[in-house]
């Protein structure tokens, strides 16, 4: 059972991060964080971009998991899923930098 948890860790983090960004975006638009300007961009935008980058970094940090893997199979699958999770975070989160938040 722990094997399943370890090989899923990177993807679980992605699922969490993805939900978090979506929730922040929804709440931010509803409560007007879009209107507050800070250093040339909306507060909401700063918030989202920083969260996104932290999530990607956290995803990459999970690469440490591969070191403690107990078998070759586990190590390779963990490596692949951690990279998949971090890559997916990078790509699926990229709209926070590229698109308009509330329209």
């Amino acid at each position: 059972m722990t094997l399943l948890a370890r090989v899923s860790a990177g993807l679980i983090l992605w699922a969490f991060g993805f939900s978090l960004l979506y929730a922040l975006q929804g709440a931010g638009c509803a409560y007007g964080w879009q209107e507050i300007q800070l250093f040339g961009a909306a507060l909401l935008r700063w918030f989202l971009v920083v969260t996104w980058l932290l999530l990607v970094a956290a995803g990459l940090a999970l690469l440490r998991l591969t070191r403690s893997a107990s078998s070759d199979f586990e190590r390779r699958v963990t490596l692949a899923t951690v990279l998949a999770g971090a890559g997916a975070m990078l790509v699926t989160g990229s709209p926070v930098a590229l698109t308009s938040a509330c329209a």
């Binding site: 990229s94 709209p95 590229l98 698109t99 308009s100 329209a103």
Partner: peptide, 17 residues
């Protein structure tokens, strides 16, 4: 896919927002 998504997001910005 990256090329496609990037282009589609930009196109979407022009059309939707």
């Amino acid at each position: 896919l990256l090329a496609l998504v990037g282009y589609a997001l930009m196109l979407g910005e022009r059309i939707i927002a």
